[in-house]
């Protein structure tokens, strides 16, 4: 079975995100003054073959926790669908 995982990796809330801060300033300069917070992460799509949804989920979990996100500084969420 073929699956597509859509993964979001975000910096943890308590960690300063200087990129988001710089972009917030840019948005203010653009005249969008009411933006109070911007945080920037990564969106990763991953196509994979697996025997079952549970099998695919396990692989995505391993990929996220071992490589795609560093749990000291980031959190991840994902959705998995057949594709």
């Amino acid at each position: 079975m073929k699956f597509i995982a859509e993964i979001n990796v975000m910096p943890q809330k308590e960690i300063l995100d200087p990129q988001g801060k710089a972009v917030k300033l840019g948005l203010h300069n653009l005249g969008i003054d009411d933006v109070s917070d911007v945080r920037i992460g990564k969106h990763i799509t991953m196509a994979l073959d697996a025997d079952s949804e549970a099998d695919a989920q396990q692989r995505v979990e391993t990929a996220c926790s071992k490589l795609l996100a560093n749990m000291i500084m980031e959190d991840y969420t994902y959705t998995l669908k057949e594709g």
């Binding site: 960690i15 300063l16 200087p18 990129q19 801060k21 710089a22 560093n70 000291i72 500084m73």
Partner: peptide
Amino acid sequence: PGVLLRNSSQ
């Protein structure tokens, strides 16, 4: 232990 993040100055 720990990790290296983007410089605070960007």
